[in-house]
């Protein structure tokens, strides 16, 4: 699964805000932290607001804050706001020579791990993973 830029920005924003739900952050603050386009992020945050994951506070000291349930919302819930996951899974040759079918079978095998993994990781679990940083000490076993 290849994630679009908007999806990655959405994940950055939701996780950044969910890490401290009482805190409000402006588009610029988030964009600067991740080195991404504030213009693009503003559009993404409006989508997240329409989905009820973040709330905007207008005026001086305003910004966005997380209003979802970090223990229930999964990475896939956020991804589905920006990606047609089902269409992505079907985006393979449906029939043809044996080699094409064989490749489709193997690529489907790879994809079959992606969705369950993203569905099983809540925002709270993801934030715990970030805090633990297993990629630094190699505790993930990979």
């Amino acid at each position: 699964m290849r994630l679009q830029k908007a999806t990655v920005f959405g994940l950055y924003a939701v996780l950044e805000l969910a890490a401290a739900p009482d805190r409000q952050l402006t588009v610029t603050e988030i964009a600067d932290k991740y080195g991404i386009s504030a213009h693009h992020l503003a559009k993404v945050l409006r989508d997240l607001g329409r989905a009820g994951l973040v709330d905007s506070v207008r005026g001086a000291g305003g910004g966005y804050r997380f209003v979802g349930d970090a223990r229930r919302l999964t990475l896939m819930d956020v991804i589905r706001l920006f990606e047609d996951v089902e269409a992505d899974a079907d985006d393979q040759p449906q029939a043809g020579p044996g080699i094409a079918e064989g490749l489709r079978f193997v690529l489907a095998e790879v994809d079959s791990h992606t969705v369950p993994t993203l569905q099983s990781i809540s925002l709270a679990t993801m934030l715990k993973l970030v805090a633990r940083r297993p990629w630094v000490n190699g505790s993930s076993g990979r």
Partner: peptide, 19 residues
Amino acid sequence: RDNTMIHAFFRSQGMTAGP
């Protein structure tokens, strides 16, 4: 693979893909 609840439980404990 289709047991999201138990998968999420082990993930929440800190488990990730193994070798």
